[in-house]
Amino acid sequence: MRDPEPTSGLQKILTSYGRRFGCDRVLFFEEKRDDIRLAYRWESPDILPLAADFAPVPRREVAHFYERFAHKNTFVVRNFHEYWRKHPQDAPHIPNLQSAILSRVNLDGQAYGLLEAVNPPAEQMDDAAQVLATLSRFVAILIRNRDVMRRLDRAGKVDQMTGIYNRRGLLESVEHLIPDVSYAIVFLDVNGLKHTNDTLGHKAGDKLIRGTASILRSVPSAATFRMGGDEFLLLKRIESEDEVPALLEKLRQRFRDADISTALGATVVRAPIDDIDAALAEADAQMYEDKKKHYESRHERE
Rank of each mutant, 00 (worst) to 15 (best):
M149Q: 15
Q160P: 00
R167C: 05
G156W: 05
D189H: 07
V190H: 01
R146L: 15
D153E: 15
R154M: 08
I185R: 02
L142E: 08
I141H: 05
R167N: 06
V139R: 00
V158T: 15
I141P: 01
V186N: 03
A140C: 10
A140D: 05
I164M: 08
P179Q: 12
H176G: 13
R154N: 08
L177Y: 03
R144Y: 07
E175N: 12
P179C: 10
R146F: 15
V186A: 09
G169T: 06
A155D: 11
F187N: 11
F187C: 09
R144W: 04
P179M: 13
R144G: 04
L188K: 00
L170H: 01
A155Y: 08
V190C: 07
E172L: 14
A140I: 01
D159Q: 01
Y165G: 05
N166V: 00
R146M: 14
S136T: 01
A155V: 02
G169N: 06
A140H: 03
N166F: 01
Q160T: 02
S136R: 00
V190K: 00
H176F: 11
V186K: 00
R146I: 11
S173H: 07
N145H: 12
G156Y: 08
D159R: 00
R151I: 08
V181W: 01
I143W: 05
F138W: 04
K157S: 11
I178L: 12
R137T: 10
E172S: 13
R151G: 06
K157P: 02
L193P: 08
R146V: 07
R154P: 00
A140R: 00
D189S: 13
V148K: 02
R137N: 07
G156M: 12
P179D: 06
I164K: 01
I164G: 02
D189T: 11
V174G: 07
L170D: 04
D180S: 15
R167H: 03
V174M: 09
D189C: 09
I178T: 15
